[in-house]
């Protein structure tokens, strides 16, 4: 195993000793199968135990290790060092989020938005347990399955220039998840969600840049979810204008 050498420039921010984030360079040897997260763990274990970052599964399922790698939002468990070698690698916390420490961002804003779209199955009336499960055909599952693959890694927020300019934007992942529940045949919560996603901070804030879909590690396509919701909302709006007696 021939080891190559690479330099990683990592954002450091220790609020108790500095006012603004700085950068620290680490030079390390790496085997061919290392990803950025492996390198960060190597630094933490063997070089500098104070480096702080989030991670858990190492296999693109937990959504914790999202960072900016050379300016691009990436899951660091899926970003191979060999793809960047021999250039340097810049590792920064996800952009547009407040930094808590080093590579750890504050996700409170995202969690509020996630909760606002009621991301669970809503029933007007729950049927008694004795009546069994809510059944679904494979076709009904296929309708929303793609949008249920989101792992809340927030890469799409870091990729979205609208979120960068207007932090009140509900954002790609939350809208895609609202779309997922709206498409679910078992769900009856569309109206409550519509209040949130059809607001100025919801779908109408999106300028169809499409970067959310580009960076999504799970191929969720939030951009499509947003555009579909725009079409549906506009159609409903036009119907209510043409036939005001039709609704309610």
């Amino acid at each position: 195993m021939s080891a190559k050498k690479i330099t990683m420039r990592v954002t450091r921010y220790r609020p108790e000793q500095e006012d603004a984030p700085t950068e620290q360079a680490y030079e390390l040897e790496f085997p061919d199968d290392w990803v950025v997260l492996d390198a960060l763990n190597y630094i933490k274990d063997d070089v500098d135990g104070t480096l702080t970052f989030r991670w858990s599964c190492r296999m693109g399922i937990c959504g914790s290790c999202g960072m900016m790698v050379n300016g691009e939002p990436k899951l660091t468990c899926a970003a191979f060092l060999r793809d960047y070698y021999p250039a340097e690698i810049r590792v920064e916390p996800l952009q547009y989020f407040p930094i808590i420490r080093d590579l750890v961002i504050d996700m409170t804003d995202f969690l509020h938005k996630l909760k606002a779209i009621t991301p669970w199955i809503v029933r007007d009336e729950e049927k008694p347990l004795a009546e069994g499960e809510y059944l679904q055909t494979p076709a009904q599952l296929a309708d929303y399955k793609q949008f249920s693959m989101c792992i809340n890694c927030m890469l799409c927020y870091s990729a979205c220039p609208v979120y960068g300019h207007e932090p009140e934007f509900i954002g790609p992942a939350a809208i895609a998840l609202a779309h997922r529940y709206n498409l679910d045949s078992r769900d009856e919560g569309q109206e409550a969600r519509q209040q949130v996603i059809a607001s100025s901070e919801g779908i109408w804030d999106c300028t169809l840049v499409g970067e959310c879909t580009e960076v999504c590690p799970k191929r969720v396509d939030p951009a499509m979810a947003i555009q579909r919701t725009k079409v549906a909302t506009t159609t409903e709006w036009a119907k209510s204008m043409l036939m005001p007696w039709g609704k309610q």
């Binding site: 606002a116 519509q194 209040q195 949130v196 059809a198 607001s199 100025s200 901070e201 919801g202 109408w204 725009k230 079409v231 909302t233 506009t234 709006w237 036009a238």
Partner: peptide, 17 residues
């Protein structure tokens, strides 16, 4: 806290057409 925007569908509809 969130309010449905009632003018954007009009502009977006024209944009789309």
């Amino acid at each position: 806290m969130y309010e449905v925007n009632k003018t954007e569908p009009f502009w977006w509809g024209l944009f789309s057409l």
